[in-house]
Amino acid sequence: MSSTSRKAATLTIAGVIVAAAFGYMMFGGLESNVVYFLTPAELVARGEGVYDRAVRLGGQVAPGSVQWDANALDLKFRVREGTHEVVVHSKGAPPQMFRDGMGVVVEGKYVRAANGQSVFESKNLMIKHSEEYRAPKDGQMPQEMYKSLIKGVSS
């Protein structure tokens, strides 16, 4: 075997390995094994095994579900995806962009509350905003929605 054909063979093998790795990443079902967050439906579907374990939950802040206690810095809302909802409880002020209908990912644990209802206890609340960037409409001040929402609904 001449040195050039050996080089070509090495390159071909390397190419095949790379293509296989690439193909695996694309189609190898990474999504079903390793997901960054669970949807409310997936969280509930996991049943007993999901309680008291560190997981991420993602979805939309269900419109009208935000309860903010400004004095205690206590936040309650529901995360929605489709028709499924999970109640989330979090301490501290949420990020500025938090509002009704915003996308969120929360890190924490799903726990059974005293009244028997399950609550997702959030340790870290993150905003998942969309790829849309829009100037405010006439008369609408940016971030005003946030302020009115957070200051207005203290229970």
Partner: peptide, 12 residues
Amino acid sequence: SSPPDRDMGHLQ
């Protein structure tokens, strides 16, 4: 030239 974004303001 760019106005603040309706959600993130000037952070845009």
